[in-house]
Simulated scan of single mutants.
Amino acid sequence: MKATKLLTTASIGAMLLGMSAAAHSAEWRYAHEEFEGDVQDVFAVAFKEHIEENSDHTVQVYRFGELGESDDIMEQTQAGILQFVNQSPGFTGALIPEAQIFFIPYLLPTDEETVLEFFDESKAINETFPELYAEQGLELLKMYPEGEMVVTVDEPIRTPDDLRGKNIRTMTNPLLSETYRAFGATPTPLPWGEVYGGLQTGIIQGQENPIFWIESGGLYEVSPHLVFTGHGWFTTAMMANKDFFDGLPEEDQELIREASEAAYDHTIEHIQGLAEESLEKIQEASDEVTVTRLDEDEIQAFRERAPQVEERFIEMTGERGQELLEQFKADLEAVSGE
């Protein structure tokens, strides 16, 4: 009888413990803009693994197209349907105009080591942007670079005059349109799902993306001439619905921050050398691909057109944008020594 009572007590205790754990566990939903194995997916999977290894929570990751386009997943996050989202400033710029700063050409260097140090040390990235995102109901957890931007076109180009008359796809971002207008092209905003077909049918004659995305999305198949203009890096941001995040217990908030840091470290390691690997895959897959790397004189012809984009950024964002730009430049000076 005593043994039975002890067993029953132990069983009830175990059941209650299990119920308690279940009550405190949750499935969180996280959507991003890329395909399986791409940079945002690498970040999301690393985040998911850290959460699940260190708690009873689970994370469901949704990749490009599973819940719609970039605008759709942002709306779902702001509505609380998704807890986490990874979206680049190329799309967030309509919501947070200051985020368009990443599309001022030749603001960021192309040297990988300097770029990575900038994202680690920048006050603009780590102090100013979280405040701007919070105003839109978003908890900014990490901003990180994915790779140098590369332009693909229907023929090799070396000068702004070569871009004249070409429809170049841009994200739905006003400042990016201004950049390509300054470069001599006709900017054509399109959602990602229409880009491959647009290039294939000639509706657009070019686009820009990091080289890994050009390889992953097969863009080189329909836009085979790759041009390295040195004008910037693709940046993205991982964030949470702020009401959700603020309503969590402190230990869960800390867990999410730790998972974001772990995912960031893993992703930064992943992108080092990724561009070279992706370019090799492209060249192995197609004999039609050409690679043009502009020299300093050729780059200067494009760089001379950057100030008008900078002026347009300040017009769009006002005093806050001016202050952010000044902080950006100070942060870059601190890491580059220039």
Rank of each mutant, 00 (worst) to 15 (best):
E52D: 05
E52F: 09
E52N: 10
N54I: 12
S55D: 05
S55H: 09
S55C: 10
D56S: 14
D56L: 13
T58A: 01
Q60T: 15
Q60C: 11
Q60F: 13
V61D: 06
V61Q: 03
Y62H: 07
R63P: 07
E66D: 14
L67D: 13
L67W: 12
E69Y: 07
E69I: 10
E69L: 11
S70A: 11
D71C: 05
I73H: 03
M74S: 00
M74W: 01
M74T: 06
E75F: 02
Q76N: 15
Q76C: 13
Q76Y: 15
T77E: 07
Q78V: 11
Q78K: 14
A79P: 01
A79F: 00
A79K: 10
I81L: 11
L82I: 06
Q83R: 08
F84S: 10
V85C: 14
V85H: 10
N86E: 15
N86G: 14
N86Y: 08
N86T: 15
N86H: 14
Q87G: 06
S88R: 05
G90T: 11
F91I: 09
F91H: 06
T92F: 11
G93H: 08
A94Q: 12
P97W: 04
A99S: 13
A99T: 13
Q100L: 01
Q100E: 03
Q100M: 11
Q100W: 06
F102D: 03
F103V: 12
F103D: 05
P105Y: 08
L107P: 02
L108K: 03
L108V: 07
L108N: 00
P109V: 10
P109H: 00
D111E: 12
E113W: 10
E113H: 11
E113R: 12
T114S: 13
T114H: 09
T114F: 11
V115Y: 09
L116V: 14
L116N: 08
E117Q: 14
E117G: 06
F118P: 04
F118I: 10
F119E: 00
D120F: 15
D120T: 15
D120L: 15
E121A: 07
E121R: 12
K123D: 09
K123A: 13
K123F: 12
N126H: 05
N126L: 08
E127T: 11
E127C: 10
E131N: 01
Y133V: 03
E135T: 05
E135K: 11
Q136A: 09
Q136R: 12
G137S: 00
G137W: 02
G137I: 06
L138Y: 09
L138D: 04
E139T: 14
L140C: 03
L140E: 03
L141R: 01
L141Q: 05
K142Y: 01
M143D: 01
E146K: 03
G147L: 05
G147N: 05
E148S: 12
M149K: 11
M149P: 08
M149G: 14
V150R: 06
V150D: 05
V151W: 04
V151L: 10
V151Q: 03
V151T: 04
T152P: 00
T152S: 06
V153G: 02
